[in-house]
């Protein structure tokens, strides 16, 4: 294999690995956006909680699978409580108010975590060791395979849920026409609660999967949340397919930018992408166009 090819392959592999994480975060944004048109800026905090709680449980001597389950469960509980206590009581407020509430919730969750769990950086052990695997000259860590495999499985499950179950379709119906959904007897408050629970689930899983690679910390949600948001904008806010493609694309852009330009600019790429999308195609790759046939 020519070295240039191996180098490119290496960048792509690390790009899709982080891209898969961004995709999970972006899917979380899309779920809540569809149910309420709210952009949940506490999405990054779900990611952070997933990693941090797993670390706490591991440090108490609990096995990894149980620690993961516990962290996912607790994060989902936080997501449900956020909807019940902070969003539902002011459900009829305008969307900007609700978005500001989620920003407040994010700051609160971050603060609470730093006070209770401290401000140190923690690394989780990789799920299947640190022995790199060889792929046509490039290397890939077993943890990357965990990330790609789990993301693929989640995407498949979500696809089945939204396309083949009545409850999934009821959530889609609510996002397309809230009034008609209410008239069909769909409890739209329950749909909103469910979407927060699912988003928290996706965020927690993303945070747990990435923690062995990047380590976890009480502020890790800020950057991961923003990058997931950039991925959601790139793919088109509210589009499931867009979230996945946007996430992978953002991961690859970042890794190619870091590899061929300079790694100093790695984190800037996400924001360049946001600006570029907003200037050139505000509805993203797969988003709904601004006008709709009535």
């Amino acid at each position: 294999m020519p070295p240039a090819f191996v180098e490119l392959l290496q960048f792509l592999l690390s790009g899709v690995t982080s891209g898969a994480i961004y995709a999970l975060v972006a899917l979380g944004f899309a779920l809540i956006y569809n149910a309420s048109h709210v952009i949940n800026f506490a999405q990054g905090e779900f990611v952070m909680l997933g990693g941090m709680v797993t670390w706490v449980l591991l440090s108490q001597g609990i096995d990894l699978p149980l620690a993961v389950l516990g962290a996912v469960g607790l994060t989902m509980l936080v997501g449900l409580l956020l909807e019940k206590l902070a969003i539902e009581p002011v459900r009829n407020a305008n969307v900007v108010t609700l978005i500001i509430i989620t920003i407040g919730a994010a700051i609160f969750l971050r603060g609470l975590t730093s006070v209770t769990l401290g401000k140190d950086l923690h690394a989780l052990p990789a799920f299947s060791g640190n022995e790199p695997l060889d792929l046509m000259g490039a290397t890939i860590m077993p943890q990357s395979l965990w990330i790609l495999g789990t993301t693929a499985l989640i995407v498949l499950l979500l696809h089945v849920f939204f396309n083949y179950t009545l409850l999934g379709k009821a959530i889609l119906a609510t996002s397309h026409n809230r009034l008609a959904a209410r008239l069909m007897g769909i409890n739209v408050n329950f749909v909103l609660l469910l979407s927060f629970g699912l988003s928290a689930l996706l965020g927690a899983i993303a945070g747990i999967l990435i923690a062995p690679i990047t380590a976890t910390h009480f502020e890790v949600g800020i950057m991961l949340g923003l990058k997931g948001f950039a991925a959601a904008i790139l793919g088109g806010l509210g589009s499931g397919l867009g979230a996945i493609v946007g996430g992978l694309l953002l991961g690859i852009i970042e890794s190619l930018g870091a590899g061929y330009i300079s790694s100093d600019y790695k984190d800037a790429m996400a924001f360049v992408v946001i600006l570029g999308v907003l200037f050139l195609m505000p509805s993203g790759l797969f988003g709904k166009r601004g006008t709709e046939r009535v």
Partner: peptide, 16 residues
Amino acid sequence: MFGPLSVEDNLRLGAF
């Protein structure tokens, strides 16, 4: 209508 959903899905949601 739930515009992007199929005719049959619209009907099924009526029986939600």
